[in-house]
Design a protein around this nucleic acid. Structure first.
Lengths: 96, 96
DNA sequence: CATCTATTTGGCGATTTGGCAAAATAGCAA
DNA sequence: TTGCTATTTTGCCAAATCGCCAAATAGATG
């Protein structure tokens, strides 16, 4: 790949890549409703908590979510709020 | 992953996933400017033509691009035009 | 200190991805 | 038919991803 392409599209492509998994896309939208701990997301998602934690770290390194420790749990929040407004045209999704 | 999450977010996540590679994101935007053949994209991208062809097949199976044969070459076009309007907030990209 | 809870990290197999080169395919033209 | 060009497919390999379990870590609390 030529360097200018990577420079121009690399970061945004990385954000798309992070959102390119159903669980992570769900998590991003859920965090758009309210901040939650990992444990709560695990209940909603149904995967092992270590798997959910990994998804969150992917989202965080892409700059999409943020986290703050509160007591003995870690609260995640949606940092890139615009994610909520992104809709792919066509019959994607099915959310209201 | 729980089934409802896959049903609700699966298709859109697949579109994000397809766009989650710098070369594919570039190709999508380039096709937004004008329809081109694979050979032309290969010159712009710099990868092997088989690699570019694969990227295009990924974009096509995600429903993002379309293709039409014209003579002995295949012309690709952007099917999901809204892709051009998707911008991730923050300092992503760098396009105008 | 020890212990409990919440979360992250390491390691593992199974699967997928990205890239190239070579072979196969499709159409055009002689 | 043969040959030529454009594109796709196949084979291969290294690297990344996904999901789980187990171990490690960080704060809380006793």
């Amino acid at each position: 790949m030529k360097a200018p392409i990577l420079e121009t599209y690399g970061r945004e492509a990385a954000a798309f890549k992070a959102l390119g998994h159903p669980t992570r896309l769900f998590i991003a939208h859920q965090l758009g409703r309210r901040d939650t701990c990992v444990c709560e997301l695990r209940d909603m998602v149904g995967d092992d908590i270590s798997t959910v934690s990994r998804h969150l770290s992917v989202l965080r390194s892409a700059g999409i979510v943020d986290s703050v420790r509160k007591g003995n749990q870690i609260i995640y929040s949606l940092k890139l709020r615009c994610v909520l407004n992104i809709r792919v045209c066509g019959n994607f999704g099915g959310r209201k």
